[in-house]
Design a protein around this nucleic acid. Structure first.
Lengths: 194, 194
DNA sequence: TCATAAACCAAGCAAGCGCTAGGTAAAATA
DNA sequence: TATTTTACCTAGCGCTTGCTTGGTTTATGA
């Protein structure tokens, strides 16, 4: 019994699991809850995943991959650095609070529920994401658009953006685009866009 | 059998629990682990706390109270607003990564492990903390020291400061004071201190 | 049409969980 | 000195957990 990794059914299960993990945390989501949300019995889950953690791994892996694609897609073609930085912030927020919100929140909050081995799988992805940010931030520092240690600026910006999962509710607060503008204006030293 | 809330022994147990909760998360810390770290048997814990959650509540309550005291103590007497804002940032970081680091990290990461009723107890404390920040930030905006929506600035700054628990290791990275300066310079629009 | 594989179910096991009951020993109090 | 209180231990109960086993149904493709 080998378990296929890319079946349609599996993707449905992963999406359903993401919501439960977000609402209840990984540890407080039982395999019975996961199964019943998907309309099957708990034992049947283990036809698709070798254990509970593999479900979490799938959720986070999915989330990280989509984040990476998103920032590349939305910033790569932009040459003007201030616009590129804004697009990066905007893309991060759009992804974080968009269609796959559950998965992204789980990626942030449940990282520590993963085993050391599972983390190893994902660290390369996370590093790639952070390096892309770092590159753009470094250029922005060189141009005087930002001031300070690029590493710290990256941690500072990504930290406050990710923190928005604690308080931001889509369709209730401001729009994501408005937020992106406010975030951008807060970190940038000279005002070039509005 | 009424349980005394302020015994010395209880405080020792709470401190010991804070470390375990930080290292393993609340859900993955068993009452047997809590007991053995304190050198007693698991059943004896329930002489001091009515249930496991009350231990978490004690850890977080303690953390929040100390945070509140710290920012008052270190900022109240300062009249110059730029220095006051810096002192606030510095106090927050000092508290977060100081002697009671474990408790503060648990306050941030395990908030959602609390029952609704336990949260109710703590929300007033948290609101008081945030309001104090908000007041100072609003004044800073009025003076042009900061630019933007005060609410969002508060979320932005506190978010990035709290996020430092994800990456900052005391005695390894920069000093907390250096960090406070860098954080301050990143958010402030006109440079008045260095 | 018939074999093969994929997707599921029914039943339950072993381990670990939070917590309790009933007791002992020592310290504090009267 | 007698009584109460505090702090702990021993033993284990009842429940939930992740996961397994062995079998059934449903779809796929030659």
């Amino acid at each position: 019994m080998t378990i296929p990794k890319q079946s349609i059914r599996r993707k449905e299960l992963v999406a359903s699991a993401a919501k439960l993990f977000k609402d209840n945390s990984f540890d407080r989501t039982t395999v019975r809850m996961l199964a019943s949300a998907a309309g099957i019995k708990s034992g049947s889950l283990f036809h698709h995943f070798k254990d509970k953690e593999e479900i979490l791994l799938a959720v986070i892996d999915d989330g990280l991959n989509k984040s990476l694609k998103a920032i590349h897609l939305e910033t790569q073609s932009i040459t003007q650095l201030d616009k590129k930085l804004f697009a990066l912030i905007y893309a991060h927020l759009k992804t974080l609070h968009g269609a796959e919100r559950d998965a992204h929140i789980v990626s942030i909050t449940e990282w520590r529920s993963l085993s050391a081995e599972s983390k190893k799988h994902l660290i390369a992805l996370r590093d790639e994401y952070e390096n892309y940010w770092q590159t753009i931030i470094s250029e922005a520092v060189d141009m005087g658009l930002l001031i300070g240690d690029p590493s710290l600026i990256r941690l500072f910006i990504l930290g406050s953006l990710n923190w928005s999962i604690q308080w931001f509710h889509p369709n209730k607060d401001k729009t994501i685009e408005e937020m992106a503008h406010e975030f951008y204006n807060m970190v940038v030293k000279k005002n070039t866009t509005t």
